[in-house]
Design a protein around this nucleic acid. Structure first.
Length: 423
RNA sequence: GGAGAAAUGGCAGAGCGGUUGAAUGCACUGGUCUUGAAAACCAGCGUACCGAGAGGUAUCGGGGGUUCGAAUCCCUCUUUCUCCGCCA
């Protein structure tokens, strides 16, 4: 959620910035500011009446104390009309509140200066590509055939137990996944991210805090009996650790990491994009989250990008980095870098990580602030990134490292496994 | 799951219908004193919103109600603690 002060004072810049998303904010902003003006006027009016009412009440108290019952009763009678007015104004203010919030929820984050205007993923900028395509002697099998050949993942079994999109990892498949999780967590730990193990279900306030609610309600599984949501990413519990937090000074840099399963309904997905591990309802992911001073957040973003680069390089995967154009950047994000790994058999790029800087967009909802040198409170910046999502990494590894003898395991994972080849 | 108790400022803890944004202590900040420090003394010390400012409004777990007036009374939700039950 953007800051209302910013919309008031930098209206044109906000509208202009959102054009990079091909988002016409003008009508919403205009309507919002009209309501905001009305809200402020009504609020002032309400507070004047409340002040008057408070004063009379105080007087009544004093009069009763002095035994001047008649005068006290006189004063009491004056309040009736004021009270009616007060409650009408209260209703009006809360209606305006709701209307303003509703508009606020419709405005996405303003893109960072580096973000190019654009409508869809076709316009994303490729800012780097590392490695090269694996050359295969024979035919490269897609990962869903490799997993079947070596009995690594049983998709049908998942269908039996739960439904499509809930795979069962078996034997070396399960071990490989566990090794990758440990590797990713260890790397995050070395980079200074403090490991957390967090709840997989969150309440509504947490969903709102990081922006999943109300915008993306349909994407989350909802346990209605208890009104809890299954997390679509560990960003939600990790970032919400800092909901309603006022950091005592400016000297902070908070780095968190956590491994969780993630649950996504993926309503509306279909076709070959969802084949095998490409798109699942449940998948595993190691996330990195940072809470930073606004002056340091862009540097932090670079560090996170470098961290993910490091992971992919150590695994020896051929990858590229995209800076998403305005239209493809997530609703809450100011700037997002996507990492894609080339899938040899599918002959396409698979997104394996996404690193984003949210500026104050999440912090505003979270009420995540810090005290400045001169005792002012200011919103912090939040960032997060996948480091990394498991299924597509596994898919890419299986496809790229397949040989006639079996699938070769990259060396960095050897300490975590009691085999070096899947055969 | 059943029974009971509780939730007040950074912490501890009073208040239980009126002038209480809230006693007191601790912590913290500034000052006096001191060569320096401690002690003592004095002053300050939550958050959010509206307002150019003066100032105003809200806030004693959340929401609602009673009342001229609620931290205080009522309803409801949440959380915590104690006891019982169940259980990885």
């Amino acid at each position: 959620m953007l800051e209302i002060q910013r919309i008031r004072t930098e209206k044109e810049a906000v509208i202009e910035g959102l054009k990079k998303r091909h988002f016409d904010a003008a009508p919403i902003v205009e309507a919002l500011l009209t309501k905001d003006q009305e809200w402020r006027e009504t609020k002032t009016e309400l507070e004047t009446i409340s002040a008057e009412l408070n004063q009379i009440s105080k007087l009544v108290g004093e009069l009763f104390q002095q035994g001047k019952t008649a005068e006290a009763n006189d004063a009491k009678e004056k309040t009736a009309a004021l009270k009616t007015q007060e409650s009408e104004l209260k209703d009006k203010v809360s209606a305006l509140d709701a209307a303003i919030l509703d508009f606020m929820y419709q405005l996405p984050n303003v893109p960072n200066k580096l973000v190019k205007a654009g409508k869809s993923e076709q316009e994303n900028e490729i800012i780097d590509e590392v490695g090269s395509k694996h050359i295969f002697e024979g035919e490269a099998l897609p990962h869903w055939e490799i997993t079947k050949k070596y009995d690594l993942i049983d998709f049908e079994l998942g269908v039996k137990i739960t439904g499509a999109g809930f795979p069962v990892y078996k034997g070396k498949g399960a071990k490989l996944q566990r090794a990758l999780i440990a590797f990713f967590l260890d790397e995050a730990d070395k980079a200074g991210y403090v490991e957390h193990m967090v709840p997989l279900l969150v309440n509504e306030a947490s969903g709102i805090g990081t922006g999943q609610l109300p915008d993306k309600e349909g994407q989350m599984y909802h346990c209605e009996v208890d009104d809890l949501y299954l997390i679509p990413t560990s960003e939600v519990p990790l970032t919400n650790i800092y909901r309603d937090v006022l950091l005592p000074n400016e000297d902070f840099s908070i780095k968190l990491t956590g491994f969780t399963s993630c649950f996504r309904r993926e309503a509306g997905s279909y076709g070959k994009d969802v084949r095998g591990l490409n798109r699942l309802h449940q998948f595993e992911k190691v996330e990195i989250v940072r809470i930073e001073h606004p002056n340091n957040s862009e540097k932090a973003l670079e560090e996170m990008v470098d961290h993910v680069r490091g992971l992919l390089s150590k695994l020896g995967l051929h990858y590229r980095i995209l800076r998403l154009c305005g239209g493809d950047t997530g609703f809450a994000s100011a700037i997002t870098y996507d990492f894609e790994v080339y899938s040899a058999a599918q002959e396409r790029w698979l997104e394996v990580s996404s690193v984003s800087l949210f500026n104050t967009f999440q912090a505003n909802r979270l009420k995540l602030r810090f005290k400045t040198e001169d005792k002012k409170t200011q919103l912090a910046h939040t960032l997060n990134g996948s480091a990394m999502a498991l299924p597509r990494i596994i898919a890419a590894m299986l496809e790229n490292y397949q040989t006639d003898e079996g699938v070769v395991i990259p060396e960095v994972l050897h300490p975590y496994l009691n085999f070096t080849m899947i055969d």
